[in-house]
Every structure is written in C-alpha cells, then in structure tokens.
C-alpha cells in the first residue's frame, strides 16, 4: 500500500485535498502532504486529480505474512 505524488505534474490546486473523505491530504508550502494514518486508500484523489499527479497503491491480493 502507498501513495505517490508527482511534484512535477502537480499544479498545487488542492482539489485532492477537497475530495479526500478522511482528510488525509493537506496542501502545504511543500506541496501535497499525505497522512498515512488517515488514508484509507480509496483512490478518490487519484480519480479526481485533473493532471494525474497522484497514484494510490491499493492492498495487494496476497498479503505478506
């Protein structure tokens, strides 16, 4: 699981922050900051991003034990 942000594509518009249902994202001076503890990997930010600057990695099928 993970969350990837492409700082070169990102326009810092904050749209992802607005649609995040768990308030796991924040637009700061450094760009978009991700709070892993809040993220539920729903992928809404990725779907929303107008420029495809976000990739959300969902849980793999086989969990490592």
């Amino acid at each position: 699981m993970g969350w990837k942000w492409d700082k070169n594509k990102c326009l810092r518009c904050g749209g992802c922050v607005a649609v995040c249902p768990t308030q796991a994202l924040e637009l700061t001076e450094n760009g978009i900051e991700w709070d892993e503890s809040r993220c539920i990997h729903c992928g809404i930010c990725e779907e929303f991003c107008p420029v495809k600057a976000i990739k959300v990695k969902k849980e793999k099928k086989e969990d490592k034990k």
Partner: peptide
C-alpha cells in the same frame, strides 16, 4: 476555497462529496 482547511480546523465538516466536485483544468 473548496478545500477549506479553516472550516475543518474550526470543527465544521465541509468535506465535499467527490461526485459533487468537478475536476477542473
């Protein structure tokens, strides 16, 4: 603006339904 961080910090939930926010470019 739409991400209204201030509202969240104040305690008003303004989180938008993603279906009711257009992705604009």
């Amino acid at each position: 603006g739409i991400e209204s961080k201030i509202s969240r910090m104040a305690g008003l939930n303004t989180t938008a339904n993603p279906m009711l926010v257009d992705s604009g470019f």
